[in-house]
C-alpha cells in the first residue's frame, strides 16, 4: 500500500518529469500562457498517461520486440485522437486554443518515457498509478508556470482580474514578455534551481564524469 502511494507521490517533486527528468518541455512552453489552457492540457496528458501505461502494462508480456515501439505509439496515438475528439465536442473553444498541442501529446517524451521505463516491466495497477503520479507532477509544474505567466502577463487568473492593469485604470503594468515562449524557459529554470536547492540529491554530477562512470544517460 505504501508502495502504491509512493508511486503517485514520488513523481510530484522527487522525480518530477519536468524538473528532474527534463521531459515534456516543448508543450510546457506552448500552453502555459494562460492557466485554463494549461489545466486542460494537464488533464489530457494525465488521462493519456494513465490509460497508455495501463494498456501497455496489460499486454506487456505479449508485445513482440520487433514491433514494440510501433505498438506503443499506435496505442498512444489512438488515445490522443480520442481525447482530442472529445475536447472538440465538449470544449470547442479550449480545443481551438490548444490547437495542435493535444495532438502532439503523442510525441511528448513523458508518455513514451513512462511506458518504456515503467509500464513494460510492471503490473497494471502500479503502472496506472505511475501514470497518475507523473501526470500530477507535470500538472504541478505547468500550473505553477501558467499561473506566474498569466498573472504577470495579463493581471488575471483563469480570466478573473487579480491585478487591475493600467489600461483599466489600475496600477499594474503587464509584462508582455511573460506571454512569450522564452519566459517559460526562465521560469522552469528558476523552478529547477529552487527544487534542487531544497533537495541537493537531485543535483547531477557533471556530464564528463557521468560518461566516464557509464551512468545512465538522459534524453
Amino acid at each position: 500500500m505504501t508502495r502504491h502511494i509512493e508511486l503517485v507521490v514520488r513523481p510530484i517533486i522527487d522525480s518530477n518529469p519536468i524538473t528532474l527528468q527534463i521531459l515534456g518541455i516543448c508543450s510546457a512552453l506552448a500552453v502555459t500562457t494562460s492557466l485554463s489552457t494549461a489545466l486542460t492540457m494537464c488533464a489530457a496528458l494525465t488521462v493519456v498517461l494513465m490509460f497508455a501505461n495501463g494498456i501497455i502494462s496489460l499486454i506487456r508480456n505479449h508485445i513482440p520486440p520487433a514491433i514494440r515501439l510501433i505498438i506503443q505509439i499506435t496505442i498512444v496515438a489512438s488515445l490522443v485522437i480520442v481525447i482530442d475528439q472529445i475536447l472538440r465536442a465538449y470544449a470547442f473553444e479550449l480545443s481551438q486554443r490548444l490547437s495542435i498541442f493535444v495532438g502532439l501529446i503523442v510525441t511528448n517524451c513523458i508518455v513514451l518515457g513512462r511506458i518504456e521505463a515503467f509500464a513494460m516491466r510492471n503490473a497494471v495497477w502500479p503502472s496506472v498509478l505511475d501514470g497518475l503520479g507523473n501526470g500530477i507532477g507535470y500538472s504541478v509544474i505547468l500550473a505553477t508556470v501558467a499561473s506566474i505567466r498569466e498573472l504577470l502577463g495579463t493581471g488575471t487568473l483563469l480570466g478573473y482580474t487579480i491585478l487591475t492593469t493600467v489600461r483599466d485604470g489600475g496600477w499594474f503594468e503587464p509584462l508582455g514578455f511573460m506571454l512569450l515562449a522564452p519566459s517559460a524557459f526562465f521560469i522552469i529554470g528558476l523552478l529547477i534551481w529552487l527544487v534542487r536547492s531544497l533537495k541537493p540529491s537531485q543535483i547531477e554530477q557533471s556530464e564528463f564524469r557521468d560518461l566516464a562512470q557509464g551512468k545512465e544517460m538522459r534524453s
Binding site: I59, N61, H62, P64, I67, I70, I71, I75, A77, S78
Partner: peptide
Amino acid sequence: NTSPAKTLIVALLVALTCGTA
C-alpha cells in the same frame, strides 16, 4: 514473442482495436 506469426497477429489486433476505438 519473437515468432513472426505472433508479431503479425499482435500487430493486426492492435491496429484493429485502435482503429475501431
